[in-house]
Design a protein around this nucleic acid. Sequence first.
DNA 1: CGATGGGCGATTGCATGCAGTAGTGATGCA
DNA 2: TGCATCACTACTGCATGCAATCGCCCATCG
Lengths: 250, 250
Amino acid sequence: MPTPKAVTTDDASLVETVYQQVLERIVAGHLPCGSVLSELAVARELGVSRTPVHDAVRQLAKDGLVAWEKGRRARVTAFTPDDVYEIFEIRKYLEGPAAELAAGRADRRHLVPLRATSVVLLSNRDDPEWTAKWADFDEDFHRTIAVASGNRRLAHEINRYRVIHKAINRIATDPELLQHAMTEHLAILDALEARDGPLARERMIAHITTWQDVFMRRVPWADQSAPAAPPSPFRESKSAGPPTVRDPRK
Amino acid sequence: MPTPKAVTTDDASLVETVYQQVLERIVAGHLPCGSVLSELAVARELGVSRTPVHDAVRQLAKDGLVAWEKGRRARVTAFTPDDVYEIFEIRKYLEGPAAELAAGRADRRHLVPLRATSVVLLSNRDDPEWTAKWADFDEDFHRTIAVASGNRRLAHEINRYRVIHKAINRIATDPELLQHAMTEHLAILDALEARDGPLARERMIAHITTWQDVFMRRVPWADQSAPAAPPSPFRESKSAGPPTVRDPRK
DNA sequence: CGATGGGCGATTGCATGCAGTAGTGATGCA
DNA sequence: TGCATCACTACTGCATGCAATCGCCCATCG
């Protein structure tokens, strides 16, 4: 079969397509955390050769979503509580300043659509697809602020961590929680519109902390299928400090 | 020739080896910014096949050191002044908190060697290899603080930006400048040893700002070989804001 | 009955082939 | 003489082959 079955209506390279496909599968919960990621299996499933899959897996490894085992096998990263804590910390370091910058460079073109969408979202609270729409808005919200910061590389880094965030976010279904998050979003928007940088920063950090607490408390990874020692990149690098239980916050 | 000429005394994968080799060449100034990066040429030069080179180039692209052109050609990233500014900003966002965290978790095992090395370095100021040793120390200094932060992912990200930093750092030869940097290093060490987080953070940010200013002022990329519109990743993504000359600082 | 070693299967790393495409140089026309 | 078009070349993307390695399973031994 020289011509594969054309995974999608390709406009980009196959590698990019495979990357997106695998990423989607990880985020969606297929390819559960800790499961081995067989290049051959993925290639067969997507109807492509192993080469682009190989490349895509390496990309995912760079993103920290896939961990190389000591051999040459790749596993979907199983995030430890430490990982989750660290990821949210870094999000604060990145998105806090981004919010502050965005307040200074605030552009109506950025902010107005966000507020409009949020208003719509708050009024149609019994929409059956409300959760999905909320997720879209959340995505849009953080991405817009990142872009509005004016620092393209910062936006790029924030986006990288949003991707990771999506991979560990399987619990955001509690309506009350989402409602609370929406309140925080609006508070941040207020600060942005008022061009109050420090306030925007503070509220963004508080917002991320809220979610950090939620994730750290619910600990959904504890009762996952993963047996005992789930793999994770950035783990085996340093043989230094013991993996002590981390203090909740500074 | 089934067995290539063994680039190095390989212990890791070929891809990793090639990655390091190319990275080194970029940092060293061979493979100047803006030059096309031919997979075939690299493969021939290193005596390996195209496959591992292809993988390595993709990795470098993920790191932002290589930019894909519209076709499928890769070029060594030519950093614009905007890029350099942004990179240093992000370094502040990452290394500032890292310093603060490191102050809180400060471990003698981390700090003592740093101070020892710095003392040696300050006494042998007429060592012919002083500049090289200084660079090593600088590397060690920032990496140690990153690790001492306790946030492994943060350390990883800081390291990523150190790599980029090395790629654009071709001017750090002014002894007076290095001397000044050493002073700042010591000031940061003082704060760390005093376990004063906020002060360490502040001094780290000031330190990075110093270098940011130096890089922005000397503008070494202006008289480089690159003709006019040097390519850079993260550039063509958004068609939004005009690439206005950036304000020096916030 | 549990642990350890050997054999087998599966999978990955690297090399190479093929085809498509972009870049480049030459040539012809205005 | 300058510009546009065309053909050629070279390089990259993807597929596939080969060999090495790793994991797993079973058999044998303590």
